[in-house]
């Protein structure tokens, strides 16, 4: 082992020891500490308000397929956090994603490179045919994931990633398959603008950015949860387009 690796190991170990200390130390009275594993006290966390679907701290009971016109109509609490309670946060995050994609485009500087395709001409028939069959199924699965994001696990990020994966596979297997830059740009900017537009509409009609302005319906039904599905669809298209763009840039670099 080289000297340099040894130093790195020692420093890392020292760091790890110090961090582990935080988990074993017995807290003094009144001191905020990390919970033991599996003992998280939900009742004392912000999450409780989100679970009750009421940030006014009154403990409402929410019943599946029965409760109507709640503050946030999504059955999936994670979705209601991502796309409703903290959707401004999410807007920032997809902006970061956009910047990363733009950065990749700039760094790879596609004009100057030789436009060499990654996929070889002799990609096997089985792969080619398999992906030809799989491609629409993957698109369908991705669409299902983000459309049902407020009812079941999944949502815009996952759905977008699945769609991007579908395009990745298509690009790898089929040499002639090509996505026009303009279509990616179009999808991405439309999605981004509609996200911001939804937010602005909430700002105008309800007085705060990205506030829900639609009826939330009954918990557990497809057409419920107000603007959450709309936001998730926008996120899905944006994430899908950006990840596809990243992959496309890397392939064509």
């Amino acid at each position: 082992m080289k000297f340099r690796n040894l130093i790195a190991l020692v420093i890392t170990a020292a760091f790890a020891l110090i961090i582990l200390q935080a988990f074993t130390i017995t807290p003094a009275a009144g001191e905020i500490t990390l919970n033991e594993f599996g003992k998280a006290d939900i009742n004392n966390r912000t999450a409780q308000l989100y679970l009750n679907k009421s940030v006014n701290t009154d403990n409402k009971k929410v019943i599946y397929q029965e409760s109507k016109n709640l503050e946030s109509g999504s059955a999936n609490i994670v979705t209601s956090v991502v796309a409703n309670y903290r959707s401004f946060d999410t807007l920032g995050e997809i902006t970061v994603l956009f910047l990363a994609a733009a950065g990749i485009g700039v760094v790879l500087n596609l004009e100057n490179s030789k436009k060499k395709k990654f996929a070889a001409d002799d990609s096997s028939l089985i792969l080619n045919t398999g992906i030809k069959l799989l491609f629409p199924l993957l698109l369908l699965a991705g669409t299902y994931i983000f459309v049902y994001g407020h009812l079941s696990p999944g949502g815009g990020f996952q759905g977008g990633a699945v769609i991007a994966t579908a395009f990745l596979l298509k690009m790898l297997s089929d040499n002639k398959f090509e996505i026009k830059e303009i279509s990616i740009t179009l999808v991405e900017s439309t999605a981004g603008i509609s996200f911001v537009g939804l937010g602005l509409y909430g700002l105008v009609t309800r007085g705060s950015f990205l506030e829900n302005f639609m009826a939330t319906g009954t918990v557990g039904q497809l057409f419920s949860a107000g603007i959450i599905p709309l936001i998730y669809i926008a996120i899905a298209f944006k994430v899908g387009a950006e990840l596809t763009n990243i992959v496309k840039n890397l392939i064509e670099a």
């Binding site: 990390l34 919970n35 594993f37 599996g38 003992k39 998280a40 939900i42 966390r45 912000t46 999450a47 989100y50 679970l51 009750n52 679907k53 009971k61 929410v62 019943i63 599946y64 397929q65 059955a75 999936n76 609490i77 994670v78 956090v81 009812l151 079941s152 696990p153 918990v219 557990g220």
Partner: peptide, 27 residues
């Protein structure tokens, strides 16, 4: 850090029909 023992995934559905059931921390 947000895990709660013997709790469910934070999704209200036919298995966990109300928020009275124990959920893990969704944040």
């Amino acid at each position: 850090l947000g895990y709660v023992e013997a709790a469910n995934a934070p999704i209200i559905n036919s298995v966990n029909p109300s928020n009275a059931a124990a959920f893990v921390d969704p944040i």
